[in-house]
Deep mutational scan, measured.
Amino acid sequence: MKVIFLQDVKGKGKKGEIKNVPDGYARNFLFKKGLAVEATPANLKELE
Rank of each mutant, 00 (worst) to 15 (best):
M1L: 14
M1I: 13
M1R: 09
M1A: 04
M1H: 04
K2V: 14
K2H: 09
K2S: 13
V3H: 00
V3D: 01
V3I: 09
I4M: 08
I4E: 02
I4W: 04
F5M: 04
F5V: 00
L6W: 02
L6E: 00
Q7A: 13
D8W: 08
D8N: 10
D8K: 04
D8L: 05
D8T: 10
V9Q: 01
V9N: 00
K10F: 13
K10L: 10
K10P: 15
K10M: 13
G11W: 08
G11L: 05
G11T: 05
G11Y: 07
G11H: 08
G11S: 06
K12L: 15
K12S: 14
K12P: 01
G13F: 14
G13D: 01
G13E: 01
K14T: 09
K14L: 12
K14S: 09
K14F: 12
K14M: 11
K14W: 09
K14G: 05
K15H: 05
K15Q: 08
K15T: 09
G16V: 00
G16A: 04
G16S: 06
G16D: 04
E17Y: 03
E17D: 14
E17T: 06
E17S: 07
E17L: 02
I18N: 02
I18F: 04
I18R: 03
I18W: 04
I18P: 01
K19N: 04
N20I: 15
N20Q: 13
N20V: 15
N20M: 15
N20W: 15
N20P: 07
V21M: 12
V21G: 00
V21L: 07
V21D: 01
V21A: 03
P22R: 09
P22F: 08
P22D: 12
D23P: 13
D23R: 13
D23I: 15
G24Y: 14
G24S: 14
Y25Q: 04
Y25I: 07
Y25V: 07
Y25D: 05
Y25E: 08
A26Q: 05
A26W: 08
R27A: 07
R27M: 10
R27F: 11
R27W: 10
R27I: 13
R27E: 09
N28E: 13
N28T: 08
F29T: 07
F29E: 09
F29N: 06
F29R: 04
L30N: 00
L30T: 01
L30K: 00
L30H: 00
F31I: 12
F31R: 00
F31H: 01
K32I: 14
K32T: 10
K32P: 15
K33D: 08
G34N: 09
G34R: 10
L35V: 05
L35A: 03
L35H: 03
A36D: 00
A36M: 01
A36L: 02
A36H: 00
A36E: 00
V37W: 06
V37R: 07
V37M: 12
V37S: 04
V37Y: 06
E38D: 04
E38Y: 06
E38H: 07
E38A: 10
A39Q: 03
A39W: 11
A39M: 07
A39R: 02
A39V: 08
T40L: 06
T40M: 05
T40K: 05
T40H: 06
P41W: 12
P41N: 10
P41H: 11
P41F: 11
A42Q: 13
A42G: 11
A42I: 09
A42N: 12
A42R: 09
N43P: 04
N43S: 09
N43G: 04
L44M: 11
L44S: 05
L44K: 05
L44V: 11
L44Y: 06
L44T: 08
L44H: 07
L44G: 04
K45D: 09
K45E: 12
E46L: 14
E46N: 11
L47A: 08
E48L: 15
E48Y: 13
E48T: 14
